[in-house]
């Protein structure tokens, strides 16, 4: 079974940590990750940049682009994509294509701060 662990915390506090404090947290996390990765149990893990760097695309027709994170609480987080693109415009282009294929709701486009690819996970029964 594959699980996603979604991280929630107060970003004002987390992004106010100084280099040393943040380094300690990251090192402690890396120590937890290492054996999991060696055991083939850990796929990609990542840290997002602050919500101030986010842009939201509402899947209306035409799509509406808004600065900032997705702030509504009516909908739930259902999944996500990681894309490797040159800039925000390209990311928004992909979001528009995905939105046209699957209308309703919104995409929050948030750049990544850290990306660890982890191990390829073997659970083929999850592929769509």
């Amino acid at each position: 079974m594959l699980y996603a662990l979604l991280c929630y915390n107060d970003e004002d506090t987390v992004w106010a940590l100084d280099r040393k404090q943040d380094g300690e947290v990251m090192a402690a996390l890396a120590a937890v990750r290492a054996p999991l990765e060696a055991a083939g149990k850990l796929g990609p893990s990542l840290r997002l940049l602050p919500t101030t760097a986010a842009t939201t695309l509402r899947k209306s027709d035409p799509p509406l682009i808004i600065d900032g994170p997705y702030a509504e609480t009516k909908e739930q987080l259902l999944g996500f994509y990681i894309v490797d693109v040159a800039d925000l415009d390209e990311a928004l282009g992909i979001a528009k294509q995905l939105g046209a294929a699957n209308p309703g709701g919104a995409y929050e486009i948030r750049p990544l701060a850290v990306y660890n690819p982890g191990q390829p996970l073997g659970a083929t029964d999850h592929a769509a």
């Binding site: 940049l49 602050p50 101030t52 760097a53 842009t55 682009i65 600065d67 800039d87 925000l88 415009d89 750049p111 990544l112 701060a113 850290v114």
Partner: peptide, 16 residues
Amino acid sequence: RKMIAEGLALIDKAMR
């Protein structure tokens, strides 16, 4: 690189 990534993302947003 983290700071640069954040800065580039922000200037991208701003220029729109």
